[in-house]
């Protein structure tokens, strides 16, 4: 059969930063920011648990909650996120536990990483590959992603708390946290 040439109908961004960004290093005195949403109560519980541990290790903790992304409220969200990113030294962005929330978790994490602060996105297992795909499409294929089990939000607080405990050490590894003896003791 004869051959013809056809034009490629696809378009993708060409640039990429494959670096995971800087390690979190020592946590003492650092301001650690949690990016929350308003849909996953399990993420509120886990971030509260982890925040307590960071405080015990000598860090400060702040929270920023994602809400509406359109209209005037969307504009205000964008301004608020920019201001918050300037106020923290480390960002933990979650929770990638559905389609659009993975999208915005990763988009905000990429924005954080692009400011140069150590950044980790948190995803549940089912959305791990999707999180990496969106990070690459966002121009940060090396974005750090910490993975929690799935399903998670369907569990009770009593079931989620042990998950928070079990996955904290893994978070520190993904963050590139180098703990001092005092932090380890805490």
């Amino acid at each position: 059969m004869a051959l013809i040439k056809v034009l490629d109908p696809t378009a993708k961004r060409m640039d990429d930063n494959a670096s995971p960004g800087p390690d979190a290093g020592s946590l003492t005195g650092k301001r650690i920011g949690f990016r929350l949403d308003q849909i996953w109560r399990c993420w509120d519980w886990i971030s509260e648990n982890w925040a307590d541990k960071f405080r015990e290790a000598g860090a400060e903790v702040s929270f920023w909650r994602s809400t509406n992304r359109s209209g005037e409220e969307g504009e205000e969200q964008a301004r608020s996120l920019d201001a918050w990113l300037k106020s923290v030294d480390i960002v933990i962005s979650g929770l990638a536990n559905c389609g659009s929330c993975t999208g915005w978790t990763i988009r905000d994490a990429v924005a954080a990483a692009n400011t140069g602060v150590p950044t980790v996105a948190v995803a549940t297992k089912n959305f791990e590959d999707f999180a990496h795909e969106l990070a690459a499409r966002g121009g940060r294929s090396g974005l750090r992603v910490h993975v929690l089990p799935y399903p998670l939000n369907e569990l009770s607080r009593e079931e989620v708390d042990p998950v928070a405990e079990a996955y904290f050490e893994g978070l520190l590894t993904v963050m590139g946290a180098s703990l001092t003896e005092k932090e380890i003791a805490a």
Partner: peptide, 14 residues
Amino acid sequence: EPDFELYGVNATTA
């Protein structure tokens, strides 16, 4: 347009 919020429309489980 930003207010259409295609980012969420594309990614969602919906």
